[in-house]
């Protein structure tokens, strides 16, 4: 098999240019989709019959929660590729993911708490999803703390990658244990809508927001990846040619 494409794909100059070229292709569609989704969700969609207008925070909460898990998976997959095929760019992708993932996990927690206030009368209830998000946030923090604690960049890459892979094996188990714990203690959960199936005018904006957030993540990832590659390759000669 010819592996040149693999090496070309993994070479920093190529990735730097490719990421730069891709950014607008994700950033603009993200902006448009999110704007349409917000209009649909905040204006066009009818109020929920039980929760009134309060439910509308779902248009930020659900996409953030989805992204947090998706980003952790992306990070762990990139880390795995970096570990197994010793691909430096994969480590750079994983490193770029961590901050974004932690941010969206935090957003989903905060919006979840804001949603909880009118529903439960309190900001925090040990709802299984909120609890699982909180643990996910700690997993992101652990990843970033380990990366920051090791001075040698190559060692930091591999150690944190291993942690991400161990983490992704654990995420479903943690999820299960938290659900199980909750089913015993019967904490109230209103973080779902009253009706079993969502009407189309509520659902379409939600799907648009999910798509928009995902596109936004890719756009931010390409920007952060460029910064990460610059930082890592600051002594390489190809950079001077690119920057001049």
């Amino acid at each position: 098999m010819d592996w040149t494409w693999f090496h070309k794909f993994g070479s920093p100059p190529h990735v730097y240019r490719l990421a730069g070229r891709l950014t607008p292709w994700f950033a603009w569609p993200a902006a448009i989709t999110i704007l349409i989704g917000l209009y649909g969700g905040l204006v066009l969609a009818p109020p929920d019959y039980q929760q009134g207008d309060g439910f509308r925070i779902i248009y930020v909460h659900a996409p953030s929660a989805w992204l947090s898990v998706m980003i952790y998976t992306t990070m762990a997959s990139a880390a795995f590729v970096g570990l197994v095929w010793r691909m430096k760019v994969a480590h750079a992708v994983a490193a770029s993911c961590a901050g974004i993932g932690a941010w969206f996990t935090a957003v989903s927690l905060v919006t979840g708490m804001l949603w909880g206030k009118p529903m439960w009368g309190t900001y925090w209830v040990w709802d299984p999803r909120l609890t699982a998000q909180l643990i996910l946030l700690f997993l992101f923090f652990g990843y970033m703390a380990l990366r920051a604690a090791i001075d040698d960049p190559s060692r930091a890459d591999r150690a944190s990658a291993l942690l991400a892979v161990v983490g992704i094996v654990n995420v479903p188990i943690i999820r299960f244990s938290v659900d199980w714990w909750n089913s015993i203690h019967q904490a109230p959960s209103v973080m779902k809508l009253g009706r079993p199936t969502m009407p189309v005018d509520m659902l379409v904006p939600l799907l648009l927001m999910l798509l928009g957030f995902t596109l936004y993540f890719v756009a931010v990832l390409t920007i952060r990846l460029r910064a990460e590659v610059l930082r890592r390759e600051r002594q390489a000669s190809w950079l001077r040619e690119v920057l001049d």
Partner: peptide
């Protein structure tokens, strides 16, 4: 890692949640 004990706990505790539960 300097003061690795605290960091090791930080990494390990979230993974230990199922055991605790």
């Amino acid at each position: 890692v300097r003061r690795g004990g605290v960091l090791a706990s930080l990494l390990t505790l979230p993974l230990a949640v199922p055991v605790l539960v």
